[in-house]
Amino acid sequence: MENIFMPKPHKIISVKKMTDIEYLFRVECPEAKDIKFGQFMQLSLPKVGECPISVTDFSAEEQWAEFLIRKVGVVTDEILELKAGDIIPMRGPYGKGFDQIDITGKRVVIVTGGSGIAPVRSLIHYIDRNPDKVKSLELLFGFKDEEAILFKDEIIEWRKRNPMILTVDKGCGIDGECVGLVTEYVPHLKLVSEGFDDVEVIIVGPPNMMKYTALSFEEIGVPKERIWLSFERKMSCAVGKCGHCRIDEVYVCLDGPVFNYTQAKYMVD
């Protein structure tokens, strides 16, 4: 019987420095044909450990997947020592992704904070390349400062075709954009003047950012069932066995990481 915890070797295609602590890995990935937007995989190193990393982009045809890896601990520190041509063990994909959301003909609003842009990047690419799938795409990104802005070239391209607000906590953005938290700019989104019957809101970022951003959408009248959150949480086994990611009766690795706000609002860690 196959060992579901056994990772398989994957060759690293390229490594690109994004910020001082974040790097973009592109890895050969035959499993890309099974990946859905918003899922994650378990990356590991023998005798070091294993960590869950969201798939930030992938190609089923070319069989590769990309991961934004942040220097936050022992495992990621060691992974960031790897280079193109090296082998990294992986398993997955895991979790329920954004495919739960019916975006067809909808006005899609995506709000991210910091590295929260990574889990939704592939979905943004898909919608941007297939604009006929949705009624509209509106984007609201928040970063700490200009140096922390991720996927800057892609953001510049996305905003040529889609309404976008880019805000930084301090300093200036790409072209002197807004300063402040994303919650301050929710009332300035286009959707506010167009009603909420056909809207789907996706929020990804640190826990407090998601909490207060979701509340901001509630305050302007967006129904809870139209709001979706993606939890960034320490998944250990990824198959609902260890309980590390459990919140009450919910296993984030199995039941998420993407949750509807009708459920996520009451998931108190």
Rank of each mutant, 00 (worst) to 15 (best):
L123V: 01
G116H: 12
I101A: 02
A148E: 12
I247P: 12
G171E: 01
D99L: 09
N3I: 02
G92F: 03
K190E: 11
E22Q: 06
Y251R: 09
D248M: 07
T262V: 14
P119C: 09
D255N: 02
L150S: 01
Q263V: 14
E146P: 10
A84Q: 13
I155E: 13
L181E: 05
K47Q: 10
H10S: 08
I174D: 06
I149W: 04
E28K: 13
M235R: 05
K33A: 10
P206I: 08
H125E: 10
T56Q: 09
I124A: 00
R70T: 15
G116A: 08
I21H: 15
E78C: 12
S59F: 03
K16Q: 15
F37S: 10
I124P: 00
E31H: 09
G205N: 03
A32E: 01
K106G: 03
F259D: 04
F151Y: 15
K17L: 06
W64Q: 06
I117E: 10
V222L: 12
Q39R: 02
D57C: 02
I12N: 12
Y94C: 07
H10V: 04
P206V: 11
I202D: 01
L139F: 03
V120A: 00
E146Q: 15
Y266V: 04
C172V: 14
T112F: 11
I203D: 10
V27E: 00
L140A: 09
E61D: 15
Q63W: 03
I101Q: 02
L150Q: 01
C51N: 09
E200D: 04
K241L: 14
K241Y: 10
P52R: 01
D132R: 12
E194Y: 09
R161L: 11
E249G: 08
Y261G: 07
K211F: 15
V168I: 12
V109R: 00
K135T: 04
K17N: 14
M18A: 13
E177W: 04
I220K: 00
P89T: 02
Q42S: 14
I13M: 00
I87G: 12
G49S: 11
E62N: 14
L80G: 10
G173F: 02
Q63I: 03
E22N: 06
A84R: 15
F217Y: 14
G85A: 07
I12C: 08
F67R: 04
P93M: 01
G205L: 02
M209I: 01
T19Y: 00
V239F: 03
M41P: 05
K71L: 11
F141Y: 06
L45C: 03
L80Q: 15
L191I: 13
V268Q: 11
G85Y: 06
I247L: 07
R129A: 14
